[in-house]
């Protein structure tokens, strides 16, 4: 499960993921290796939250467990906390299929 070149702060769940899961609370100034690249974290990130495993472009899909969980709202540099401020659902926001659906019963 442990990605190569990362410390024991971050857990990679799936090889296709562009996010890593925080397993040790991260504080501003903490350093870590992500795929051999040294990253200095800018903010607090709690256990269970996710950070970018590499730089992600605006509009790019974000993958966790190998499944897309939404799109980046802005450019997300490697090691940045990914949450409500920079990731949006592709589903609820674009969910219009059922808009005019009426149950015939």
């Amino acid at each position: 499960m442990q990605a190569e070149g990362t410390s024991r702060k971050l857990l990679r769940i799936h090889r296709d993921d562009n996010v890593l899961i925080v397993v040790t609370p991260i504080k501003p100034g903490d350093r870590d290796l992500i795929d051999g690249l040294e990253v200095v974290f800018a903010q607090d990130v709690a256990i269970g939250h996710k950070v970018a495993a590499r730089s992600i472009k605006p509009g790019e899909k974000v993958y966790k467990c190998g499944v897309p969980i939404g799109s980046a709202k802005e450019a997300i540099p490697v090691g940045t906390h990914i949450h409500l401020h920079n990731l949006k659902s592709d589903y609820i926001a674009t969910y219009t299929l059922e808009k005019d659906r009426v149950f015939v019963k």
């Binding site: 709690a46 269970g48 996710k50 939404g70 659902s89 592709d90 589903y91 059922e98």
Partner: peptide, 25 residues
């Protein structure tokens, strides 16, 4: 959607879940 919710409670976001898809996984 009719209920006005997507089974996403405030505690979920606090815990690090961002989207309904992510919670769905």
């Amino acid at each position: 959607r009719v209920m006005g919710h997507a089974s996403f409670a405030p505690g979920n976001a606090e815990g690090g879940l961002t989207t309904i898809e992510e919670k769905s996984i």
